[in-house]
Design a binder for these strands. Sequence first.
DNA 1: ATAAAAATTTAGGCAAATCTAAAAAATTAT
DNA 2: ATAATTTTTTAGATTTGCCTAAATTTTTAT
Lengths: 218, 218
Amino acid sequence: MTYSEENYLKAIYHLSLSQKQGVSTNAIAALIESKASSVTDMIKKLADKELVIYQKYQGVMLTDKGLMAAKMIVRKHRLWEVFLVEKLDFAWDEVHDVAEELEHIKSEKLINKLDAFLGFPTEDPHGDPIPDKNGNIIKVEKQLLSEMEIGQTGICVGVKDSSSSFLQYLDKQQIALGSKIKVMAKESFDMSLTIEVNGKTMIISNKIAGNLFAKTVL
Amino acid sequence: MTYSEENYLKAIYHLSLSQKQGVSTNAIAALIESKASSVTDMIKKLADKELVIYQKYQGVMLTDKGLMAAKMIVRKHRLWEVFLVEKLDFAWDEVHDVAEELEHIKSEKLINKLDAFLGFPTEDPHGDPIPDKNGNIIKVEKQLLSEMEIGQTGICVGVKDSSSSFLQYLDKQQIALGSKIKVMAKESFDMSLTIEVNGKTMIISNKIAGNLFAKTVL
DNA sequence: ATAAAAATTTAGGCAAATCTAAAAAATTAT
DNA sequence: ATAATTTTTTAGATTTGCCTAAATTTTTAT
């Protein structure tokens, strides 16, 4: 499998998580930052290899084989992110691009030994799940902070947006995975939230709250 | 710099270590397992980028810029090998192919943090020197076992051939980096050596002795 | 010194992955 | 229902890295 094929599979995988239907050519092109015509070409190749099911004009879906391949790429990406943060002291906003390269290294032995070295982590530094060697994913019930009720308390367990600017904002506000957050009030005009974190009270916009995952605690 | 350009630079670097002259097209083709015509193409591209000096029919030499680039690739390769052996418990005969891929990951931060994580090693698992971040290499005086005098004792500090079959042979004979080896006798007919390692006496062929580096001790 | 052999380069082509522009199909809006 | 818009595909071109085969240069041997 080529570098490029792997990137397409991964893109289709990510897009198919938030959709029941086939994934559209344009959506793939947008995510991968290429052109629709390039996507059509590649999709045909993936279909020939039985990694996706493709019917002209109908979008594309992963086969079982394609799904497993995609999960293995995601597995590698996220394990390398854990390595970079836990072992090499990278900040959580610095790991994405490097992991984007590391995920293409082809060695099952390597990734399984890395997994063991890291202690078989189940989540990456952004709270996203790491598929195990068989492709199994532990699903954690979590909700967006923007969907929590006033008075509820949650533990921050992930981010939806893992862009550098968002992650650096969180660092600045001293919000990290594991932080306990209590929703104190919600402004109905702009849906901004008043929250309490680390004993401090602060106001966050609806956009921020819509990109933070929390696990509700009593 | 592309993956392929990096492989050419590395090949030219390795070949130029054992030669004062320019490196020949055919030598590169043989090492890289490609054709002379492909090498000519790539050499022209490297010359355009001022990584090598090239005159038709005269072979090729690295520029300062090319030399540094090559050393950085070798640095990455060897640091990753240390990582694989020291941290992930790979055997020394299993690391080459994986490191061949890892050496192309583009992140100075990554490699310098990896270097620190590993404790700034100066040699890889085969005894080859690891260039530091400035390209400096610590040269260790060492000689081939085949060149040692009868009665001399040495510490094994490296291998010339790092093929899997040779390394596995050494494992089987319990010869490793750090082993103390005393040359007891040399057979003039075939230049085979009688040596003493770990208290055991054994006979090794001239071919074996010609691929083992030792540092003489009193 | 010149012929034969070896090494190197050039010329022309191929496959992968991408692109632009045009054509075709599907969707939407009137 | 049909026209306008959007999406998708096709056609044809480009770039990179590689190849084979032929031409050229260099080296070796007589």
